[in-house]
Write a protein that binds this DNA or RNA. Structure first.
Length: 557
RNA sequence: GCGGGUGUAGUGUAGCGGUCAGCACAGGGGCUUCCCAAGCCUCUAACCCGGGUUCAAAUCCCGGCACCCGCACCA
């Protein structure tokens, strides 16, 4: 039997996966805690993500601040784009975005100032579209959470709406780290913050959320990602194009047919699919949907969302966006920093540059035997450096001239092109739990069929009864397994059947039971969660056996 | 943010002016050689918060908070 979202929420609260934050103070909408089980599951999912992006794809991690000064988000466009002006109907209460209302009458309207906006609404006589009632003055609503840094007035700052900006502004050290060669990827796993108007459905829309983002930088003339998976283009996925096609084809075909324009987008779609499959998402309920032009973010030219089907419908869990050169260009313009990369030209190009030209006779007079050194120095100088000095002596103006000469340039300064796969970890956890939860036939008891490497515990150790030394033997086995680096769930309360059920409910894949035979011959039973089938094995064989069972799941990506 | 609904032990619920606030499951302790939430005994544990009406409020009214369903929003 398939489980619903409500069943997941009930289980999550009861068994310590997640619950609403701040409950003793009435709660606060849009914030959730991960409990003992949920925290372990979340870490396991993130470690698979890191394994793929960092270990296999050779991307580099970064950990940058959650709080960003205003300048960063001015440059990225977020302070402007994230501010909405909302106006309400005084009669029926309907809410509108003020700029959208004006745009309907003046299609090329651009926001300039608040006063202008108010005047335009008055002059155009805009009223409620539903009931014709008068509208309130527009209210400013910023989708970012702000704070002040330092004493006094403080410096206006925001909690980052995405982890991406921390990567863009650190482009130079990563360019150096990757030996000045493109393409390369930088990944960040961390929190993002948005002041959502109406957070809903537990982990689906949070005000503080976990994200895992990769910013991949390309030479604009060669946007290709040669990743770890050579077979990626033969992977079949379901694609929904913005022209309304719904097709299941290989990524290679999608490229050939022009459905996907950029090779890295196809590759990252494949990577997303493999990641979700590896953590145990139902692959029959995964699709990739291309954004319509009007729903694209301000920075993006093309974007494919990965959507997963749940009882709440298809929900977006990952976005793969072509951010082009937008962000880096913005940061160059706003900060003045050199965020270019140097590209060696195949054919050096000729350019005209201004140079100082020394007058040899004058130089011989002034610098004597060092005159040639002085000449070389001057002629290498940038002509913007006025009043050149050599060996502490000002070089008089009549000792040189400025000439324009033709030089060959071997490098050009370019702005990297960015493609970004961005994962919403909380939504992935929520939908994975729903895909994993089922009720056992007959009894109706819930089972979370998490894969062993995602499960909060790899194995449960259970004495058949907590007496006759069975519990002591079980604890010895538990300790042995912990020393072998397994995460172990030990339970001796209630009856054996209860303990199996409790372990099933939080997704523990294997249970080891210590019974009377264990005391005689050193064997235990090993029970598999979904089949409930048992086999008897020697306790010394447990570590190797379990390792093999678990590894099989980690390595099939 | 708007409209509608809901808020009772850890979970799921009954009670709808006067109840020791009931039940089931879960949880703790005990008994039973006990392999799939078995049984028996026993214990713990709740009326979302704040105001009001009333002799009396979990129950009626108002406000807040949270959740659910729509609408809007979701870069």
């Amino acid at each position: 039997m398939k489980m619903q979202y409500q069943d997941v929420v009930e289980l999550a609260k009861r068994r310590g996966i997640f619950w609403p934050s701040f409950e003793i103070y009435n709660g606060l909408s849009g914030f959730y805690d991960y409990g003992p089980i949920g925290s372990l599951i979340k870490d396991n999912i993130i470690s698979v993500w890191k394994h793929i992006f960092i270990d296999l794809e050779h991307m580099a991690p970064i950990d940058s601040p959650n709080i960003n000064p205003q300048e960063v988000l001015d440059a990225s466009g977020h302070t402007k784009v994230f501010t909405d002006y909302i106006t309400y109907c005084e009669r029926c209460g309907e809410a509108y975005r003020a700029d959208e209302l004006i745009k309907k009458k003046l299609p090329d309207y651009e926001f300039t100032s608040y006063d202008d906006m108010v005047k335009k609404i008055e002059h155009l006589g805009i009223r409620c579209e539903k009931c014709g009632g008068p509208l309130t003055k527009p209210e400013k609503f910023n989708l970012m959470l702000s704070t002040k840094i330092g004493p006094g007035k403080g410096k206006l700052s925001y909690l980052r709406p995405e982890t991406a900006q921390g990567i863009f502004i650190n482009f130079p050290p990563y360019l150096r780290y990757f030996r000045e060669k493109l393409p390369f990827g930088v990944v960040q796993v961390g929190k993002g913050f948005r002041n959502e108007i109406s957070p809903r459905q537990s982990l689906l829309r949070l005000r503080e959320f976990n994200m895992a983002e990769a910013e991949v930088f390309f030479d604009p003339e060669n946007i290709v990602w040669n990743g770890f998976f050579n077979d990626m283009m033969s992977l079949r996925v379901r694609l929904l194009t913005n022209r309304g096609e719904d097709v299941e084809i290989t990524l290679g075909e999608a490229m050939e047919r022009g459905i996907i324009k950029q090779q890295p987008i196809a590759y990252f779609i494949g990577l997303t699919y493999r990641f979700l499959k590896n953590i145990g998402m139902d692959t029959g309920r995964i699709r990739f949907r291309q954004h319509h032009p009007e729903e694209l973010a301000h920075y993006s030219k093309d974007c494919w969302d990965c959507e997963v089907e749940t009882s709440n419908g298809w929900i977006e869990v990952t976005g793969i966006a072509d951010r082009n050169q937008y962000d880096i260009r913005q940061h160059i313009e706003h900060s003045g920093a050199d965020l270019y990369f140097l590209k060696k030209l195949n054919i050096p190009r000729k350019i005209k540059v201004k140079r100082y030209r020394a007058l040899d006779t004058k130089f011989k007079e002034i610098f004597g035997k060092d005159w040639e050194k002085a000449k070389r120095y001057l002629e290498s100088l940038d002509v913007n450096i006025k009043n050149p000095v050599f060996q502490g002596k000002l070089i008089p103006e009549d000792a040189y001239s400025v000439v324009e000469i033709e030089e060959e340039e071997e490098f050009s300064k370019e702005i990297a092109w960015v493609i970004e796969p961005s994962f919403g970890i909380d939504r992935i956890i929520l939908s994975l739990l729903e895909h994993s939860l089922y009720a056992r036939e007959g009894t109706g008891y819930k089972v979370l069929k998490l894969k062993p490497h995602i499960s909060p515990f790899k194995v449960a150790v259970l004495p058949l009864m907590s007496k006759d030394g069975l519990d002591d033997e079980a604890m010895r086995i538990e300790r042995m397994l912990r020393e072998e680096n397994f995460t172990v769930y030990y339970d001796e309360s209630g009856s054996i059947g209860k303990r199996y059920a409790r372990a099933d409910e939080i997704g523990v894949p294997y249970c080891i039971t210590v019974d009377y035979q264990t005391l005689k011959d050193g064997t235990v039973t090993l029970r598999e969660r979904d089949s409930t089938s048992q086999e008897r094995i020697r306790k010394e064989d447990l570590p190797d056996r379990l390792r093999r069972l678990i590894n099989r799941c980690i390595t099939t990506i």
